[in-house]
């Protein structure tokens, strides 16, 4: 069984979620290829070739493939699809944007956001914000699958796949990239960080996130947020953890001033250890917290920071 994985990258670096997708693929078959579609993405191809378990890296380099424009990348994958039993991608924004377009062009249903491989045809995936887990079996001739990265370990380095050039298809002329406004941070990336500290509406103001950042810097943690904190403009959209934001499963998740709505829990309840700091002892977040501290965050967070020395 040959499997093609669409790499997620920004032409400079391979997104870590690609590594978790390789691990999911190794549970399905052993001939794993990675497609690096981009513009001047040579470094990404090298990183992909170094992943253990990958036998081939296909590179399609063209200006029309920069920034993962779905209308241009989907036909490229389509042109390769007949060689594969599975087409996979991480369930990141890139994977979610491109893969359903591929599936529809192949006239197959996609299996979104898998958390377990039962067999090459059968997978588990969360539904209803993770309140239920469905086992889904597909008889489609080719399985189009996106993978929840937190459910699979990242694949190790140590591979030496061959790198082959693939031809890019023409510009569909439907979408063009204008610009990005990326939030820059020296901290680890949210979905792969070992520790995450998130703030909610209880933070009251964006400037108060500085308190969380100080703790994060001492712990080597990433900073996240609830939807309410993002909607209120405290922090940018890419901080949002939850059903409709990012899914994280770090060793330690610290929820500060977050009530624990199911949509938030959907994005963090698989964390190994959960800490909640909330002044309301009835807050639902305490039902999933291993360690709950009923306190005013404006006292507790600065104290936490000093006690970490």
């Amino acid at each position: 069984m040959s499997i093609l994985i669409l790499a997620d990258h920004d032409d400079g670096q391979l997104a870590p979620a690609t590594l978790n997708t390789v691990t999911a693929a190794t549970q399905i078959g052993d001939d794993i290829h990675i497609l690096v579609a981009g513009d001047a993405s040579g470094e990404v191809a090298k990183s992909a070739a170094a992943i253990a378990g990958v036998s081939k890296v296909l590179t399609a380099d063209d200006t029309t493939l920069a920034h993962g424009i779905a209308e241009n990348v989907a036909p490229l994958i389509l042109s390769m699809a007949s060689d594969y039993s599975h087409l996979m991608a991480p369930a990141t924004i890139t994977g979610k944007n491109i893969m359903p377009r591929v599936a529809a062009l192949l006239d197959v249903m996609q299996i979104s956001d898998i958390i377990k491989v039962e067999s090459p045809e059968s997978f588990q995936r969360p539904i209803y914000a993770g309140n239920a887990i469905a086992t889904v079996t597909s008889n489609e001739p080719v399985k189009v699958v996106t993978v929840r990265s937190t459910a699979f370990e990242p694949a190790a380095e140590g591979g030496s796949a061959v790198i082959e050039a693939a031809a890019a298809s023409a510009d569909a002329g439907l979408s063009s990239y204008v610009k990005s406004e990326l939030s820059s941070s020296e901290r680890p990336e949210l979905t792969s960080a070992p520790i995450v500290i998130s703030g909610g509406r209880g933070m009251q103001d964006g400037s108060n996130f500085a308190m969380l950042e100080k703790v994060a810097d001492k712990l080597g943690a990433a900073v996240g947020a609830s939807r309410a904190a993002v909607d209120a403009g405290f922090v940018p959209n890419d901080y949002q953890v939850g059903q409709t934001g990012k899914v994280v499963a770090p060793d330690l998740y610290v929820a500060v001033g977050i009530s624990g709505a199911i949509q938030h829990l959907a994005g963090m309840k698989d964390s190994k250890v959960i800490v909640a700091i909330n002044k309301d002892e009835e807050a639902p977040i305490f039902q999933v917290a291993d360690f709950g501290l009923v306190a005013d965050l404006f006292d507790a967070v600065p104290e936490l920071e000093t006690k970490l020395d």
Partner: peptide, 8 residues
């Protein structure tokens, strides 16, 4: 998008 915002 994952890193912030993108204009198309």
């Amino acid at each position: 998008v994952d890193g912030g915002l993108e204009h198309l």
